Simulated scan of single mutants.
Amino acid sequence: MAQAVAQHHEAADGSGFPHGHAAEALTPAAHVLALINRYDRLCNPHHPAKALTPHEALALLFARHKAQFEARTLAAFIRMVGVYPPGTIVQLSDGRYATVQAVNASRPLKPRVLVHDPTVPRSEALLLDLQAQPQLSIQRSLRPDQLPRARYCYFFERALDAQAGEERP
Results as ranks from 00 to 15, higher is better:
Val81His: 04
Ala76Leu: 02
Lys66Asp: 08
Lys66Gly: 08
Ala63Gly: 09
Ala63Cys: 10
Phe62Trp: 12
Ile78Trp: 01
Thr73Cys: 00
Ala71Pro: 15
Ala71Tyr: 01
Glu56Asp: 11
Thr53Leu: 05
Phe69Tyr: 15
Thr53Trp: 00
Phe62Arg: 12
Leu60Ile: 10
Leu74Ile: 05
Phe77Asn: 02
Thr53Glu: 11
Ala76His: 02
Glu56His: 06
Val83Met: 01
Pro54Gln: 08
Val81Asn: 02
Phe69Arg: 09
Ala67Asp: 13
Ala71Gln: 10
Glu56Asn: 08
Phe69Leu: 13
Gly82Cys: 11
Met80Ser: 07
Thr73Gly: 00
Arg64Cys: 14
Phe77Ile: 04
Gln68Tyr: 12
Gly82Lys: 04
Phe69Lys: 11
Ile78Tyr: 00
Ala59Thr: 14
Arg64Gly: 15
Ala76Glu: 00
Ile78Ser: 01
Ala75Thr: 06
Ala59Pro: 15
Ala71Cys: 13
Lys66Leu: 09
Ala71Trp: 02
Phe62Ala: 01
Val81Met: 03
Ile78Gln: 05
Thr53Lys: 04
Ala76Gly: 09
Ile78Pro: 03
Glu70Cys: 14
Arg72Val: 09
Leu60Ser: 14
Leu58Trp: 02
Pro54Arg: 02
Leu58Gln: 06
Phe69His: 09
Phe62Gln: 12
Phe62Glu: 11
Lys66Tyr: 07
Thr53Ile: 04
Lys66Phe: 07
Leu58Ala: 05
Ala63Thr: 13
Pro54Lys: 01
Leu58Tyr: 00
Ala63Leu: 13
Phe69Glu: 05
Ile78Arg: 00
Lys66Ile: 04
Ala75Gly: 06
Leu60Phe: 07
His55Pro: 09
Phe62Ser: 06
Arg72Phe: 07
Leu61Glu: 06
Ala57Glu: 12
Leu74Arg: 03
Arg79Phe: 10
Ala67Gly: 15
Leu74Ala: 04
Phe62His: 11
Arg79Ile: 15
Glu56Trp: 02
Leu58Thr: 04
Lys66Cys: 06
Thr73His: 00
Phe69Trp: 12
Arg72Ala: 10
Gly82Gln: 12
Ile78Met: 10
Phe62Gly: 01
Arg79Ser: 13
Val81Tyr: 01
Leu61Gly: 07
Ala63Trp: 14
Pro54Gly: 08
Ala63Arg: 14
Leu58Ile: 06
Phe62Leu: 10
Glu56Ala: 06
Gln68Cys: 10
Arg72Trp: 06
Gly82Ser: 13
Glu56Ile: 03
Glu56Gly: 08
Thr53Tyr: 01
Leu74Gly: 02
Thr73Tyr: 00
Ile78Val: 08
Val83Asp: 05
Lys66Met: 10
Met80Leu: 15
Leu61Pro: 15
Ala75Pro: 13
His55Val: 04
Val81Gly: 03
Val83Lys: 03
Thr73Asn: 01
Met80Lys: 13
Arg79Gly: 09
Ala59Gly: 15
Leu60Glu: 07
Ala57Pro: 14
Val83Glu: 05
His65Thr: 09
Thr73Glu: 00
His55Thr: 07
Ala59Arg: 15
Arg72Ile: 09
Val83Pro: 11
Phe77Thr: 04
Val81Ser: 06
Phe69Ser: 07
Val81Arg: 04
Ala75Cys: 10
His55Phe: 02
Gln68Ser: 13
